[in-house]
Design a protein around this nucleic acid. Structure first.
Length: 290
DNA sequence: GATGAGCGG
């Protein structure tokens, strides 16, 4: 840490001028794990002052190229400068951490940098089954009421013993998870890859959902009811509207109870003229897929 | 022309 903040702020143009009255040249030396940089300058009151800065040396590994670059000879105006950064033309700012996506050299030194721990990790980890989805999306979210106990287990190992003893069924689950024996359905053989549960987002199954586009602006939910009810029971209708204005966005999702009904609705209504527009009806894809 | 909103960690 520089011990004299105010000195740094003056521009180096000033400093260069000041250096012209015969001030001793800056110097630096290493004391233990501290680098001591000494320089002399004229302060605001016109007095010569000695500024000593102490830098804690971090033994951070640098890439080969950076290390090599440090051995280069100085050139140009700085030809005769002592080794290390010259405080009259170099400002040491705060450390900047960079994250490299692929750098073989970085990969080898993963131990000391805390950032590296985050790197290869899954973005989210379910608190219930430890899989890489949000806890709220976990297939077991409502199946086992063990969530509170599992949370306790995370933070307070001592509490586990008591809760486990009190509720044997819970403890079995915990034991299995700790032993790593438990295999969530998404990981079992024959499971569909990726962590999604059987019900896609928010208890909606798009297997029997159709999307209707090219709806006129003034079509309402009830109109869609009337239009699609003949094909079968409808679980849900969503007419996309602008959240603020409430205007229809011109498309809707019709969620049938039975997929066959949805299929017939597509066959029956796709291309159907409605409100002087030709409707387009097709299978809905789960939201978020572009 | 357009694939819903929402909960975070």
């Amino acid at each position: 840490m520089p011990s004299a903040d105010s000195e740094i702020k003056s521009s180096w143009a000033d400093q260069v001028e000041q250096d012209e009255d015969d001030l001793p040249p800056p110097s630096e030396c290493i004391e233990g794990d501290t680098k001591v940089v000494t320089e002399y300058k004229v302060n605001d009151e016109g007095k010569k002052v000695k500024v000593v800065r102490y830098y804690k040396i971090e033994h951070r590994k640098v890439s080969k190229t950076v290390a090599k670059r440090k051995t280069w000879k100085k050139f140009g105006e700085a030809r005769n400068d002592p080794p290390g950064p010259n405080p009259t033309n170099t400002v040491v700012s705060e450390e900047i951490f960079m994250q490299f996506l692929s750098n073989k050299e970085e990969e080898r030194q993963t131990d000391d940098d805390p950032l590296n721990k985050l790197k290869g990790q899954k973005i989210v980890k379910c608190r219930i089954c430890k899989d890489d989805h949000w806890t709220t999306q976990c297939p077991f979210k409502d199946k086992l009421g063990a969530l509170p106990d599992l949370l306790k287990d995370d933070t307070n190992p001592a509490a586990t013993a008591t809760t486990a003893a009190a509720t044997p069924s819970t403890s079995q689950v915990e034991d299995k998870m700790k032993a790593g024996k438990y295999v969530p359905p998404s990981m079992r053989e024959g499971a569909n890859r990726r962590g999604e549960s059987m019900v896609s987002s928010r208890n909606r199954d798009d297997a029997a959902t159709i999307r209707v586009t090219n709806l006129s602006e003034d079509v309402r939910d009830s109109d869609l009811q009337d239009l699609f009810r003949p094909f079968g029971n409808i679980a849900r209708i969503y007419l996309a509207k602008d959240k603020v204005t409430g205007h229809s966005k011109g498309f809707a999702f019709i969620n049938f109870l039975r997929r066959e009904d949805a299929a017939r609705a597509i066959a029956g209504v796709n291309g159907f003229g409605y409100d002087n527009l030709i409707l387009n009806v097709e299978w809905a894809k789960p939201s978020g897929t572009s």
